Amino acid sequence: MADNKNGREAQARNEERRQRERAIAEELERADESEPPVDPTELAYFESELETLEFPATAAEVVATVGGHEIESVDGTYTVVDLLPDAEVESFDSPAEVRTRVQRPTIAGAMKRVVEAAGEHQSATFGTSQRDGYERTFRELRTIDADDDDEGIEVIADWIIERIHEKETLPGSRDVRRRAAEFCRSNGYSVRNDEWLGI
């Protein structure tokens, strides 16, 4: 590249993108996930698109800005609108937080459905720890049920949504874990008492 202002700016952008790709790749390696990987380059470009937003940003703002962006994983191609709820109740503090959410498409899609169902009922509000508990339960199901088309994640997401519609409130995190453990055991998956689902 030419040693002028444009060349230096291009080099700086390329270096920043490479650093972002390395950070994403390291994070994906550290995460003990069975979710099919999303290419770190894909996530780095996506994260750079998010820089047009002012953070903290709601999920609805993210969807409005980059909802049509496609993210390819080993399982298939998803748009951001498939993975994030078009809702004000969920917010993100940084582009990295959005990237972390969409790098697990199966779990993100299930959480989108739950958040949108909760948004239909004023009394069904999420606390951060409850949301994290639901997501961790989905991650555990993904690990256990990785070979069965994520049936467990769909079953538990459906169960949560049914409870929201019936009782107009979110089931507790322990109830969700208990239901997930019942699903696992009834389908021949072992769940030990010292595991997250082992209630």
Results as ranks from 00 to 15, higher is better:
193 N>Y: 14
171 P>I: 04
172 G>Y: 01
194 D>H: 04
168 E>D: 13
197 L>M: 02
187 N>Y: 13
194 D>N: 11
181 A>P: 06
170 L>K: 00
177 R>L: 00
189 Y>M: 09
184 C>E: 07
189 Y>N: 06
181 A>E: 14
197 L>E: 01
194 D>M: 05
197 L>T: 01
186 S>T: 15
186 S>N: 14
192 R>C: 05
169 T>I: 08
174 R>N: 10
174 R>S: 12
169 T>N: 06
184 C>F: 05
174 R>P: 04
185 R>T: 15
187 N>E: 12
184 C>Y: 06
182 E>C: 06
175 D>F: 03
185 R>E: 15
183 F>K: 03
190 S>G: 11
179 R>W: 10
170 L>T: 02
175 D>C: 00
189 Y>H: 14
175 D>P: 00
168 E>L: 10
170 L>R: 04
182 E>H: 08
183 F>M: 06
179 R>C: 09
171 P>K: 07
178 R>E: 14
194 D>W: 08
193 N>G: 13
191 V>R: 02
176 V>M: 08
176 V>F: 07
168 E>A: 13
185 R>Y: 10
198 G>C: 05
168 E>N: 14
179 R>F: 11
184 C>M: 10
181 A>V: 07
193 N>E: 15
194 D>S: 07
195 E>S: 11
196 W>N: 01
173 S>W: 04
187 N>C: 10
181 A>H: 09
194 D>V: 07
172 G>C: 00
195 E>P: 01
198 G>A: 07
176 V>C: 09
189 Y>T: 05
169 T>K: 12
197 L>R: 00
172 G>F: 00
173 S>Y: 06
186 S>G: 10
190 S>C: 10
193 N>L: 15
